[in-house]
């Protein structure tokens, strides 16, 4: 690889990891330009959308595209790329090392294991239900159903790889489980259980990034993320609506 190629490959890798794991676009743009500048090409052009990253170096025959086909949420990776870019700017690591480290980050698995994420889901569903509805009678059914719903979503998303379908099925199951808990007398209010149970599945990252990207003037990625958030919300809503109309 020539130096130009390595610079572009490194920038694209950094950009791809950040977009794939839920960073906002302006930060990706900023990080790629910083890496390019610190590598000695201040006149680079980057074009970042949530489905692909492009970069060229002005005046030289060097342009590359990196397609982005999957998007997950792993904010730790965004933070790690950010930290690496800072180290590169401070001349603590050189370009080949940066590229190698980025590859390592790309291949790394989630740092929180599944059981800890399930604890997270339990912490989200129970407390938020109490905060929103001001009652504690339905706490345990909410915690259990919320955790179960997140587990179903996680497993389906892992094997089906269609996020909206997983959300739909998880919402259906949460609705049915809440109905069951109500029927057997474990819970007293089916609405509260469903509200709490759905909270871990809320599309927080697409929603926040839609607002941030649009405000930053990224009129391709902002609305696209808005559509992603709306589809997620619609999948959850449809799953619940089916259960409500059935009973």
């Amino acid at each position: 690889m020539t130096t130009d190629e390595l610079i572009i490959a490194t920038c694209l890798k950094a950009g791809r990891i950040m977009v794939e794991n839920g960073s906002e676009i302006s930060r990706v743009d900023d990080t790629m330009m910083r890496i390019a500048t610190n590598a000695g090409v201040p006149d680079a052009n980057t074009y970042v959308t949530i489905t692909g990253v492009m970069m060229s170096i002005q005046g030289r025959n060097a342009t590359q595209i990196a397609a982005i086909n999957k998007r997950t949420i792993d904010l730790e990776k965004v933070s790690q790329v950010n930290a690496l870019s800072r180290q590169f700017a401070a001349r603590q690591i050189d370009l080949p090392t940066l590229y190698r480290r980025l590859n390592l980050i790309d291949q790394a698995a989630h740092s929180f294991p599944l059981w800890l994420q399930l604890v997270g889901a339990a912490l989200v569903s129970g407390p938020l239900m109490i905060m929103f509805r001001d009652e504690t009678v339905n706490t345990w059914p909410t915690v259990v159903i919320g955790t179960l719903g997140y587990l179903v979503f996680y497993l389906l998303n892992r094997y089906l790889k269609i996020k909206f379908l997983s959300e739909l099925v998880a919402a259906l199951l949460i609705g049915l489980a809440a109905e069951w808990a109500y029927q057997v007398g474990w819970g007293t209010n089916i609405n509260d259980i469903i509200i709490g149970g759905l909270m871990p599945l809320v599309p927080g990252v697409p929603l926040t990034n839609a607002v941030r990207d649009t405000l930053a003037g990224n009129f391709i990625s902002g609305p696209a993320r808005g559509v992603e958030a709306m589809l997620s919300a619609a999948a959850l809503g449809f799953g619940i609506a089916v259960v409500i109309t059935l009973f």
Partner: peptide, 22 residues
């Protein structure tokens, strides 16, 4: 006080789901 503790727990939980740095 209870509400504030619950808010802390909920944010912590969502942080775990999103895999933010510990």
């Amino acid at each position: 006080l209870g509400q504030l503790i619950l808010a802390y727990a909920a944010v912590l939980g969502f942080g775990l789901i999103l895999n933010i740095p510990h």
